[in-house]
Design a protein around this nucleic acid. Structure first.
Lengths: 221, 221
DNA sequence: CCTACCGATCGGTAGG
DNA sequence: CCTACCGATCGGTAGG
């Protein structure tokens, strides 16, 4: 076993620099935690894995975060805040509803390769009641609300069927939209012949267009 | 902590009875493992939890299964075989394609309250390569194939758009169908006011109809 | 941010 | 020799 490359703090540095380094380390931990937690789930990722990937010892994490759950919470808050910003920006574009939905789908498929349903599972089963409640609300506000806003425009413009016409409300539409971003579709794609890395974005864009087309117009002739 | 009620084997029983009891216990373990693994995931369920729920000690499990993974594999094989039987039976009914899709959705929503995407995650991330390959194939044959068969009929009957007409092939349709059965939709339902237990089946049936309607005809007016 | 550890619990196996 | 387990403990790992 090789020792991981460790960042070597030199003596005599000013307080400012140390604070910057400390903040830098904190951000590194959050980024590594995001990649691991979002792909493998809360339970499967150990604090030592995260520490190792950061070039730190495992106890060092507890200088930055109270415990494993606090680290997950901080990661999730940051991730959801980031998502919220991007999704709201797309939702406000002056483009047709269907085009904005395509952009939302494409973004979710390219950037979050992991399944957000796994995050839902973790929120529901692996975290304490308080954190669960917090993230539950945040999930709704950051992910569902921006998507529902676009569907709501579609309903107001008369492009979509209202619930009384056999359609669904905007929030339900957003959940259906998110469900189509799930592991099943991604998994189906993985069974296709291996795809060159540089074609991934194109594929995601094509798949986004397909998913939105299906959701809007259905499979029937 | 109370001692779990333990089945008390009496002396003087014949070999046949003992074999029956052994088989009975094995089936009990599989049933309990199914409930726990399917709801919480491979990692989160301990062998002691399973044993406790069966009224056995944890080492007793190792008389029936070589290890935790072998137990998961046996459980998954049985569960998928059961699903395959029911889904194929529904798929062969002499009813319109849309009606059969509704029945498939309703069945999946009522019986498997857990998210099958969780099983996909476990297959992908928690199990060894050999078990993963086995379950991957079985998953496709047991779940996707029967659903795809119904969509294929829809395509042959000209009810559904073919890929060249902007539609999707039967297998892709099956994946889209399964993705709509996911945690997101179920979770959305949980946020509704609490529902009486005896209305659950009705709800699932209504939700199944809604999901199939959306998948076939889309949200657009 | 490290080394040296803890209480507990994990999956799995020993002898009886 | 078999079955259906038990009490105790194995090597490792969890969060702290």
């Amino acid at each position: 076993m090789k020792k991981p490359a460790r960042r070597s703090p030199r003596e005599g540095q000013t307080r400012i620099v140390r604070e910057e380094e400390s903040e830098e380390t904190r951000r590194l931990i959050l980024q590594v935690a995001q990649q691991l937690f979002m792909e493998y789930g809360y339970r499967a990722v150990t604090t030592r894995q995260i520490a190792d990937a950061c070039g730190l010892t495992q106890p060092a994490l507890y200088h930055y975060f109270a415990d494993k759950e606090a680290l997950y919470l901080a990661m999730a808050r940051e991730e959801l805040a980031r998502l919220k910003g991007v999704l709201e920006r797309i939702a406000r574009r002056s483009e047709p509803v269907s085009e904005r939905l395509r952009r939302l789908a494409s973004y979710l498929l390219t950037t979050t390769r992991h399944d957000l349903a796994l995050m839902l599972h973790d929120i529901r089963y692996e975290l304490s009641a308080e954190v669960r409640a917090q993230l539950h609300t945040l999930f709704e506000e950051s992910l569902i609300a921006p998507i529902a806003a676009v569907f709501n425009e579609g309903l107001e413009q008369g492009l979509l069927r209202s619930p009384s016409e056999g359609g669904v409300d905007a929030r339900m539409a957003a959940y259906l939209f998110m469900s189509l971003m799930s592991r099943f579709v991604v998994w189906g794609r993985e069974t296709l012949p291996a795809v060159a890395e540089n074609r991934r974005e194109t594929l995601a864009s094509e798949q986004a267009a397909l998913l939105v087309r299906v959701l809007l117009y259905g499979l029937a002739r």
